[in-house]
Structures are given as structure tokens and as C-alpha cells.
Amino acid sequence: MTVDNLPKLAPIEIGYRVDPALPIIPFAMEVSRAGCAAPHAHPRGQFIYASSGVMRVVCRRDVWVVPPSQGVWVPPEVDHEVYFPGDVSLRNLFVDPSRTAALPVECAVLKVSPLLRELIVRAVEVGDDYRPETPPWRLMMVVLDELACAEKTPLHLPMGRDERLLRVMEALLREPGDRREIEAWAAVAGASVRTLSRLFQRETGLSYGAWRKRLLLQTALDRLDRGESVTTVAFDLGYQSLSAFIEMFRQALGAPPGQYARQSGQSTSTGRCRK
């Protein structure tokens, strides 16, 4: 199913509610196979986060696939669309324009640390029933601090728009460990190898091989963050040997997966902003 065929959702009205006394208005929703009716913008900034499931976020010319280890920050008054090809537990934060100065001025994919994840869960429980200088209000201010400290991830996965390219991408998103080469995928796309290669480069800025490696890395990071073993992740992603997976990971991120996971946990568990 391509995004054009998904049932359409109206924009969330909370985004248009300007009230400095409510620095954050959280929003929770269970969504299944749906998407925005049209590109839209609103006065509040929006941190788009799914605690489970994968989203596709379109922000101006960028199209990203976003797993639960990441979220997308959309500044106020920036056109965007969101699609949910599967089942998604949506946990959004709508930030009043009076509180966005410390946040990115452009759309950005941000890493969701364990601390930020728990803060979002708690914020959703609070909702918009709070007043300035109360404990719930102070919670929202901590959430803002954590958002300002969140690391931008270099591993966002750009998506294409051409239907032939999307057939291949969506098949790989369903099964990242599929090891077929581009010649086999060309038949799936209904295009020549040359055309498919050109579509990858033109619409994502990456070759097929580079795009697929980024998908593997993103999938691996998400699963490692969930506590899965390096061995399980490596073989599920189609690697014939654990050493080959570790070497690919090390070359891309500068550390083997076990060390990277430990460093990530140490840097995010304290909640300290290093900016």
C-alpha cells in the first residue's frame, strides 16, 4: 500500500491553539494505516513521536522513515505531512511558539533517549490540565529542556516519491534482511536497473547500496536500543557472519555495536545536556 492509497486524517486542532500558559500540549492517538489529508502547518511546533510502529514524515522536500528510537521536530508554521503505513502508537508534543527559541529552526530528526521517552509518556498522562508554576508545568519545562538537548541523528532514512521506487523501499522496510541485489529489485519495481539506480540517487541522494546500508543501521540501532542481542540482530538482518555485521557497524559509526550501545546508554541515561 502506497501512502497515496491510505485513508486520510484531518490535521490535529491542538496545533492551532496558541497559549503561552501551556508550553506543551501532549497528544496521544492509536493510528493504523492512515495519513494526513494534505500538507499543513500550524502555529505550534510539533515533536512527532511514535512509541511503537514506524512513521513516514514529509517535511518540505525531505521524506523520512522514523522508528521509535527517533522523533521529528517540525518548527511552527512549517508545512508537513505524516503517514502511518502500519499500526502506530502516536505520542505528539505540540510546543507553544513562545517556547521554541531553543529548538531547531529547521525540521530535524532527533534521537529519543530513554529519559525523554519516559518524560513523553508522563506528559501524555498529564495532558493539558495544568497551570503555570505547578508540578505538571515544571514537568513540561523539563521536557522542553530534554528536547533542546536531543541529538540530531545522521541516520534518517530518506524516502522517494516515485511509485516504482516505493515498491522496492516498502518491501525492504517490511523485511530489512532481504539480501536481493538491485537487479532483482528492478523486476519488482517494473523498471530497468539503470532507471532504478537513477531513481534512488535522484530522490534520496543515495545509491541503492548506501540507502540499504542506512536502513540496516537504523534497524539495528532501534533493535539494540530495545535490548536485543548483537548476534540476533546481525543474523535477522541477513548477515552471514557476526564479524561482517560488526565491521559494517564499526565503519559506519566508529564503534562496534556493543560499545556503541553502551556509550549511547551512558550518554542518555543521566539526562544531562552537553550543548
Rank of each mutant, 00 (worst) to 15 (best):
R272A: 03
L221H: 05
E30Y: 12
D62V: 11
E247H: 11
D62A: 15
P11R: 10
L224I: 08
E228Y: 10
P176Q: 09
R198S: 15
L147C: 10
A50M: 05
W211A: 06
E203M: 08
P257W: 00
Q266W: 12
G160F: 06
G86R: 08
P67K: 02
F27C: 10
I24Y: 08
R161H: 09
V66I: 14
V193M: 12
P43T: 13
P154L: 08
V54Y: 09
L115P: 03
G190S: 03
V168E: 06
A171M: 07
V143C: 14
L253E: 14
P23D: 10
G190L: 04
K213Y: 02
P104I: 05
Y208W: 11
R122M: 04
V168T: 07
E151W: 04
S52C: 11
A187K: 15
P68Q: 05
W211P: 02
F84V: 10
Q201T: 14
A34W: 00
R179I: 07
V74Y: 04
E106A: 14
Q218K: 11
R250F: 01
P23T: 07
L215T: 10
P257R: 05
V63L: 13
W137P: 12
G71P: 06
M159P: 00
C149K: 06
P75D: 12
L119K: 12
R44H: 02
P68S: 08
G53L: 06
V78M: 15
A21V: 01
L165M: 12
W73F: 13
M141C: 10
D19H: 07
F245W: 04
V72S: 00
L9K: 06
D178V: 03
S89L: 09
S269A: 12
Q251G: 03
V126P: 02
K111P: 00
G227E: 01
V112E: 07
E170K: 01
R194M: 09
L172C: 07
A38K: 09
E247V: 07
M29T: 01
L221F: 00
V58Q: 10
Y239E: 04
L224M: 08
G15N: 08
H156I: 01
V3I: 15
I120D: 05
C273L: 03
V66W: 00
A252L: 00
S243L: 07
G71S: 10
